[in-house]
Structures are given as C-alpha cells and as structure tokens.
Amino acid sequence: MAQAAIPFLKEGDAIINTGSIVGLVGHPHQIDYASTKGAIHTFTKSLAAYLGEKKIRVNAVLPGPIWTPLIPGTMLKEDLQQFGDATMLGRPGQPEELAPSYVYFASQDGSYSTGSLLEVTGGMPKTS
C-alpha cells in the first residue's frame, strides 16, 4: 500500500502505521501476530529513512491492551476479566485514549517526528 501511495505524497505528508507492544516484547500465544507487528516496526523505520529526503514522515503507534469490539469476540471469557491487568495502570485502554497519538503524527505538532514508535500501553509490560 505504501508503494502505491508514494507517488501521490508530497513534502510534509505522513504515513502512520499501527504496530503493537507485542511486536517489541513478544507473546507466547500470539507468535505470528507479534512477528508481523515487529516487521511493521522495522518497516516503519526503514520507510522513514527512505522517504526522509522527500520530507515525508513515517511513524507507528504501538497500542497495548485497548478495549475494542474485537476483544470480547476473540478472547475466552475467563481471560476477559484480566484484560489490561498486566499494565502499570491495571486496566485496558479505551480507543479515545489511543486516537490522539495518530492525530499527533498526522498534524504539524508531529512535524519533527519520523521513524518513531509511540507506545500507548498503560505501562505494559508491567515489570513487577
């Protein structure tokens, strides 16, 4: 998709990818998901380097546990009760807490950010 979009992008434009915290720390039950998200992280940094001379920014938002409609439809009932407990804040995030990260990267406020991976995780993974 990025390859198809590049001819239409101009100086000051931005590409924002979605990674995941599990792409950095791994997950024993989501090996394929964690691997592909890790690839998105390196793709983001590589594409940022490639498009930097054209002044096109490329960044990624890395969500942690965010409560979306996908969650109750893809998790076991007993796991739902602990969803988000592994964060320092002890709860899952809400989509409206994640959205400003994308707005930042898309706006002039993020004009000096490229090749960045912004973790929005509630402090995940908790280390103690």
Rank of each mutant, 00 (worst) to 15 (best):
L70F: 13
Q82H: 14
P69L: 04
L76Q: 13
Q82Y: 14
I40N: 04
A48K: 01
L80M: 09
Q82M: 13
T42G: 01
S46R: 08
P72F: 04
I71D: 09
H41L: 14
K55N: 15
T74S: 09
T74M: 08
I71M: 09
L70P: 04
H41T: 12
P63A: 11
T44L: 05
D79T: 09
L70Q: 12
H41W: 11
V58S: 00
G64K: 02
M75C: 10
P65R: 05
Q81Y: 12
K54V: 07
I40G: 01
L47A: 06
M75V: 11
Q81N: 14
K77F: 10
S46W: 04
P69N: 02
I56L: 07
L62D: 01
K54E: 11
L47H: 00
L80Y: 04
A39D: 06
G52A: 10
L51T: 03
Q81D: 15
M75T: 12
P65S: 12
V58A: 00
S46Q: 12
T44S: 07
V61G: 04
Y50H: 14
I66P: 00
I56T: 04
W67C: 05
I40Q: 04
Q81S: 15
K54S: 11
P69W: 01
V58K: 00
A49L: 15
L62V: 06
D79H: 05
R57M: 08
T74I: 09
G38C: 09
K54R: 14
V61R: 01
K77L: 12
K45L: 08
L51P: 00
I56Y: 00
P69I: 06
I56K: 00
P72Y: 03
